[in-house]
Write a protein that binds this DNA or RNA. Structure first.
Lengths: 316, 316
DNA sequence: CCTATGCGACAACCCTCCGTTGTCGGCCGG
DNA sequence: CCGGCCGACAACGGAGGGTTGTCGCATAGG
């Protein structure tokens, strides 16, 4: 009971023109062949799709079939595009590269397939927002924070993942043996920041919220550099998304945070006035992945989320 | 370039077993026929889907194709189900019947087709919430307001439409000639309520917000009854969703409200722990319809929404 | 009432294509 | 080196889909 999409195509074309002759022309075939195709489809489905009485019009069943038929055609085209590499590509600019945003995008894309994408050169949220507004890129992915002067006006965003963060510290750190730690346990330690703290919205809010006053920041010299320092400083720590990969054999320990568990809010952003054709498919991929992998779980009494992220939460 | 889903089915089955013989058995055909089908599909796509070297495994292209192929098969099945009437039915309980909730559900379903649904006996939000929790129905649709005692715990809801409301009044009402009215213009008029006001969350909040103190309520005796009273009372008015149909030839006037425009918030609700198989399709229908018909537009400076509805808003 | 016209269905024909049966070749384990 | 398993290849037969040609049935106009 599998449809041949060629038949479905014939139906959709005929439903469009309501005229066998013209629809046949459109499909580069003859009226008779088209007539047979429709008849075949009708027999397969066991339902009359058109009422014929001097001209044709959609039957009630045809009316029900039409939108679903269009969907099926579109799905077929996406499948073909997925494998032949034809069709559009969506450019996705990510930021917060230290936290490996790509892995989440890749996972969401994999769920549905059929989306070809390429990473953009994104650096940070302000620059990606600008690129989106200029049309230099199609989609942004990372942690969004409010921009001054309405520099994000016209952009739509959607929260797609809340990721718990772990503490990362040296085995020589006094707390290294714990199975779980509370943020308040870290007050006596030194927060090592991967870049200048005033450019790290999440880390800054985290440190402020939990009164972590000993902080060490500096220019972004990459993950390895940070790891080096952490390894040698028994008082130092940093926080890191729980599923983001640390370089292997760093010898550092990753310990879950609880009471509360801080969450890192990953969002997609795009310019509403120029939606990319693949956007809907991609959003479905994130929705699907988010549900199965529980990417959007948030319990106010268990988790901590920066104030500015709260509006992004919603019953969805 | 239209796929034959029978070929796609062959591919998916083979990708599942990674064994031509067993997949052929599963498909009730011979190994040779299956082999030919795969070859045909590969030629059509111009890509090798399997690597053959003593046994088979998916090629890179096959890996990309698989999820999209599953999607296409599902879409095909939905299309067949839409027209043959096979497949599951989703029971949707609506409430606020005076405001004709069904029309919005019907519109959303129409966008994608393929969802068979039947209305339930819903009366009001509390009773529908209870029915959802008991599993007596699959989905609820109407305006959701918070319930006491956690009687809505375990239910997920999603805002799907914000509908402006119009004033409805008799032609003999002094304001009947206006092209648009402000809520504050109605302070001297009498709000006729279609039921007891303490059961009408939206109307109560509306009247309180805009200081409409003259109110007339009573048991719900139906739309016609309300219309009768409105027609004869030159001081009376009621408010009504802008797109909801009033009975024809009522002789009443409908006038848009502005500065601000009150919005009626329609939501879907379901029990997260027992998602109906059609729920995702249905949600996509609402998302799609919502975008094209601008069902979710809200400007705080232009519109008015009861406080309790604000958490439902979200960037999505 | 008759005819012209336009449209879709039906019939006959032909060829392509798909599934069948039978067989070969290549990769494995012993 | 050999046997067994698995997928590809070859040959054949029948169904199916496209072609051309024609008919039936509407509707409109004289």
């Amino acid at each position: 009971m599998d449809l041949d999409l060629a038949l479905v195509r014939a139906f959709v074309a005929t439903a469009g023109t309501l005229h066998f002759g013209r629809a046949a022309e459109e499909l580069n075939t003859s009226q008779q062949a088209l007539s047979k195709r429709i008849a075949r489809l009708e027999e397969l489905l066991g339902v009359r799709l058109f009422e014929r009485q001097g001209g044709i019009r959609l039957s009630e069943a045809g009316e029900r079939f039409l939108p679903a038929a269009r969907e099926a055609l579109a799905a077929g085209e996406r499948a073909v595009a997925a494998v032949t590499g034809t069709g559009p590509v969506v450019r996705i600019d990510t930021w917060g590269h230290l936290y490996a945003p790509m892995r989440t995008v890749a996972e969401a894309v994999q769920v549905l397939g059929a989306v070809r994408w390429e990473p953009g050169p994104g650096r940070d949220w302000p620059s990606v927002a600008q690129a989106l507004l200029r049309g230099d890129t199609d989609l942004g992915f990372g942690r969004v924070h409010p921009l001054p002067d309405g520099r994000d006006a016209g952009l739509t965003q959607r929260l797609v993942r809340l990721e718990p963060v772990d503490v990362v510290l040296s085995p020589s750190h006094p707390l290294a043996g714990a199975d779980a730690l509370r943020p308040s346990d870290l007050r006596d330690s030194i927060l090592w920041c991967p870049a200048e703290l005033n450019r790290l919205d999440f880390l800054r809010r985290f440190a402020d919220e939990f009164r972590i006053t000993r902080r060490h920041d500096g220019p972004n010299l990459g993950l390895d550099h940070l790891v080096q320092h952490l390894r040698t400083d028994p008082e130092g720590f940093t926080v890191f998304p729980a599923d983001a990969p640390l370089p292997d054999h760093t010898g550092l320990r990753s310990i879950p945070l609880v009471e509360p568990t801080p969450l890192y809010a990953w969002s997609l952003a795009w310019r509403e006035s120029s939606r990319h054709p693949l956007l809907d498919t991609l959003l479905r991929g994130f929705t699907e992945a988010g549900r199965t992998r529980r990417w959007l779980e948030y319990k106010p009494q268990r988790d901590w989320l920066p104030d500015t992220d709260h509006p992004k939460l919603a019953v969805r």
